[in-house]
Nucleic acid binder design. Sequence first.
DNA 1: TATCTTTACGAACGTTCGTTAGTTATGACT
DNA 2: AGTCATAACTAACGAACGTTCGTAAAGATA
Lengths: 199, 199
Amino acid sequence: MTSRPSNSPRKEQIINIAKNLFRERGYSATSMRDLASAVGIEAASLYNHIKSKNEILEWIVFGMAEEFFAAIRPLENRQDTPEMLLPVYIEAHIGVIVTHMDAAAVFLHEWRHLEPKSLQRFIQQRKSYESKFVEVVQRGIDCRQFQEVEPDFHVMLLFSSMNWIYDWYKEDGPLSPEEIAKQIADLFLHGLSNNRIGQ
Amino acid sequence: MTSRPSNSPRKEQIINIAKNLFRERGYSATSMRDLASAVGIEAASLYNHIKSKNEILEWIVFGMAEEFFAAIRPLENRQDTPEMLLPVYIEAHIGVIVTHMDAAAVFLHEWRHLEPKSLQRFIQQRKSYESKFVEVVQRGIDCRQFQEVEPDFHVMLLFSSMNWIYDWYKEDGPLSPEEIAKQIADLFLHGLSNNRIGQ
DNA sequence: TATCTTTACGAACGTTCGTTAGTTATGACT
DNA sequence: AGTCATAACTAACGAACGTTCGTAAAGATA
């Protein structure tokens, strides 16, 4: 539907470097001259490949949005119980984050610099994505696998836990993405306390 | 030790408005002219009250840091069990956030625009603050009230859950800060699942 | 060889940035 | 009445901003 980020390798390179700079310094604090110099060309030359600075942000943000949707799309028709399904959703979401750390940080922090039209689309898409997680939790409550909690609230907490991973995750750290996902799923399902049954 | 934000009401007003603008648009995307116009004076007049734009950021960030430390200071010598203490820490931290929403958002998002010296001090203070939570969890593990988890990791998750509250909390919403704190504490201690004992 | 497209460049545009300088009105203290 | 500090103003600084322009080199196509 939306066209791909690029067929040109140069454009792809520009966007990739922008992901890193926007993440490190923020969108507003990154100048086109900064970006150009990191690419190895002059600022003016960027405009042979991209239309504007803001367009780069759009590529990054909506590219990530698509990644998130794509990751959970194959899960939506599963018949598993909510208790089994939630960890799978969690692993999918975390998988996207850790394989696109820079872009994830930009997606989560810099979206407010989108222009009004794109901003509106972004908020809409995010809402739609979040609601898919809420659904799972709601089903868990309905069939009494989960406690009677406020699903929106708990999904907020869940996203908070997952979305700050980019802030501390190291590829060579002690935990793999799958282990992180399992830990978070366990935490949300069972908590920290020792006085519980089940595993 | 560090002098107070201000004795002048004008300076206080400038900083308060800056908290809101920095939160809404980000530090870099907020100009001194934006700030001045929100205050109702000219940009140049700001400099009768503050030394520089970056100094404003410092006031905000380190003011919040002090709030966080002050909130847990009275808890540090308590003799409670970790299971009882952790919720109190959580409530203290959340209390600071919800009573300083704008400043909290700036504290959490805009600290990287501090200048090197202040940046270093910030990171150091944050580490020190986080470690106080880690200690509680570690004690919980030591006395077998908590499962044998990685305390740093779980404290990260805890902070993630707490620190994104500014993103969705509404003063007139359904949950009070104390209820939010209790929910988060319950979640981390007991999880979502229904197959558990104790409460 | 002639033509066209791509991608780089240097120069420059108009705007905005944070900040400084110089000045003036106000009001408090002597 | 005279002095002084405060806090506002207008004007302006030099630098940096995103972006546009005209052009030139290189490579593909014919």
